[in-house]
Design a protein around this nucleic acid. Structure first.
Lengths: 211, 211
DNA sequence: TTGTATTTCAAACGTTCGTTTTAATCAATC
DNA sequence: GATTGATTAAAACGAACGTTTGAAATACAA
């Protein structure tokens, strides 16, 4: 077997199964069966089940956060160059759209989004703290951009509205395929793109609300 | 032991532990130990672990949803009586505030809120579907009220904004005690009340946003 | 008090879990 | 081609899981 092939197959299977069944709901036997590798391979390559989910999260979160950071800085610096405040919708889009385009980059990425959305609500401290530690610098940057964009709003209020936004984002990301959606409510096609536009409008308006 | 005493002690312990550790993360041995009842008592009184979590959810959700329904109908009927559209903020408050006052009604209620917030993100179909089936009529009523309050907005858009709101609500409810909140961001006191006010402003404005 | 139904209890059931062990296999270097 | 180190393989480990059993204890009506 190719070098790194086994590790990647384990990571792919783990990503898929953790997303679908959660951490506790997924056994190493499920993972190694789906990856068609030996049961002992997980402990050999990753040490433990906990270290495995850490590796799953880090593999995708690093490039995603780098992209988010790059786009946020682009919006901020462009505004500073023109000596004006950043646009709120642009700022929020810089954070949200990498998530969207990342989600559409492949089925593995979709699994990862579901996994992360769940990690935030998961009792498993490992998954949650890995995720929170990695995303915190990006959230700080987003908060800073929004504070520049909305000087009339108390930074404390912006902070909480940021979390309201994260709740909306993760809830939709995670439940889009599961919600009992009446057919007449379902957008005809490009549904995810349409819903993202609606989300962006919703949170932009909420973010700009007078206190 | 008092009649029903055993069942209620099991329900209380299960509520607490499911909220703290999730469904898969909680064993019947943990529950029966905390409830100081025999291990077999769960299967005797409830039949199975799955039926237990159903009973946990139904015990609290029924009265909570009754209260929500009552308040929503009060807002709607008051508006109809005066021949005007319901107020959006009042409508949303009718849904959200029972959750808030319920949460503050005791430690068991707080556990339950955490449990429900998690049930929405839990891979366990049992918990999620019990919750969704019970809350669906309330959401339909809320959707109907908002459609009356916002005739200029497409009902489909209202539907999705409703889910954005639920995401914000559950995220905050569930993570309030866990988020790494800088001390300068934390409201001084009555924090939950203050945050709820901010949430209400955020989602009301987002709900009223032009399409 | 006796008889009956309900509830509690300790013990064990079979399964599945994450992990470890030991040997076999593979790849690359001398 | 032999040697060495990295990887894979099969099997077993003890622990914990949800559930079941059958007897003991309790409650309550006759």
């Amino acid at each position: 077997m190719e070098p790194k092939e086994t590790k990647n197959r384990i990571l792919d299977a783990a990503e898929h199964l953790f997303a679908e069944k959660g951490y506790h709901g997924t056994s190493l036997r499920m993972i190694t069966t789906e990856a068609t590798v030996n049961l002992a391979a997980v402990n050999y390559h990753f040490g433990s089940k906990e270290s495995l989910i850490e590796a799953v999260i880090e593999r995708r979160l690093l490039p995603l956060n780098q992209l988010r950071t790059k786009q946020l800085k682009a919006v901020r610096d462009e505004a500073r160059r023109n000596d004006r405040a950043p646009d709120v919708r642009q700022t929020l889009a810089a954070f949200i759209e990498p998530t969207l385009s990342f989600r559409n980059s492949g089925p593995g990425a979709q699994d990862f989004i579901a996994l992360v959305a769940r990690a935030l609500a998961d009792p498993n401290d490992t998954a949650r703290s890995v995720f929170i530690n990695r995303i915190k610098p990006v959230l700080d940057l987003l908060h800073q951009c929004l504070a520049e964009a909305l000087p009339q709003i108390d930074p404390q209020t912006i902070f909480w509205r940021l979390h309201f936004m994260i709740g909306s984002l993760t809830h939709i990301m995670h439940n889009l395929d599961k919600l009992p959606i009446p057919t007449e409510m379902m957008p005809t096609d490009n549904s995810f793109q349409e819903i993202t536009e609606m989300l962006l409008t919703f949170i932009t308006t909420g973010m700009e609300a007078p206190q």
